[in-house]
Design a protein around this nucleic acid. Structure first.
Length: 247
DNA sequence: TAGGCCATCTGGTCCT
DNA sequence: AGGACCAGATGGCCTA
């Protein structure tokens, strides 16, 4: 989907192969050919087995055309590798909680990676909170069975209780696949997370501070809120937040 | 015009 | 040996 954005975007992230034209117009390649023609090798070391009857031809033994073919092959492979990488990056962009559309500029690669990291942290946090809440609910029900009979919460209310975190998550994290631009967003300004339904932090802070995402819950009136604003972060989540992206 | 982002080429290194 | 992966260099495009 977003790979289409490359065609609508002012610039293409993966331009179609123009191997011959781009490669042969490349100044480096031209310089390379010039060096070969003038007999001034750029970097290859003098080979001892050149013309000495080696069993298999080394790079130095290859003719100019063969060397050129080899270089083209290597370049093509590298190009394909980078295109695959960009495709994967597009796939990642598609599932990010971010406004997408022809009028919205694509997230840069670094922004995509940083946002993905924070998104994962937020989802982990939501999952932990939901687990904790479900545990509390079932624990309370067990106690009520063993002790005196307390009027249990109606089933609908229980569902609401246990659904609250997921509601938060859904509201706050469902990828927006519509093409509607965010309010106050210029066609070429970086997209904001304002579509989430709450005042979104500016992108830079969102990318830097994972807590901005985890605090981005929508607060429903009358509904118990398990979000990290209203409750302290669980220890496991806190440890998650301390994770670094170090290599 | 400077700076950011990107695609591409290229040579080196590592792995199978 | 061949391919994958990586990082540096280079040049183009776009935006503030």
């Amino acid at each position: 989907m977003d790979s289409d954005a490359s065609s609508t975007c002012s610039r293409s992230s993966s331009p179609e192969l123009a191997v011959d034209s781009s490669f042969f117009s490349n100044k480096v390649f031209q310089a390379y050919c010039t060096d070969r023609e003038t007999g001034q090798p750029r970097s290859e070391k003098p080979s001892q087995n050149t013309g000495s009857g080696g069993k298999s031809p080394t790079h130095a033994d290859l003719s100019k055309d063969d060397l050129q073919d080899l270089r083209l092959k290597v370049n093509s492979r590298e190009r394909k590798r980078m295109h695959d990488l960009n495709q994967a990056m597009d796939g990642l962009r598609e599932v990010m909680p971010y406004a997408q559309g022809p009028s919205v500029r694509k997230l840069s690669k670094i922004s995509t990676l940083l946002l993905a990291r924070n998104y994962i942290l937020m989802l982990s946090s939501s999952l932990e909170e939901m687990k904790k809440l479900v545990g509390d609910v079932y624990g309370a029900r067990g106690q009520s069975h063993s002790a005196r009979r307390v009027p249990a919460a109606p089933a609908s209310q229980l569902q609401l209780l246990s659904l609250a975190p997921s509601l938060h998550s859904l509201v706050g994290s469902t990828p927006q696949h519509t093409t509607m631009p965010t309010v106050g967003q210029t066609p070429h300004s970086p997209p904001s997370a304002g579509y989430l339904g709450f005042p979104a932090p500016p992108l830079p802070s969102l990318l830097k501070d994972p807590l901005h995402l985890s605090s981005g819950y929508r607060h429903f009136p009358g509904m118990p809120c398990p979000c990290s604003l209203c409750q302290p972060l669980p220890a496991s989540t806190a440890s998650l937040h301390s994770l670094s992206m170090g290599k």
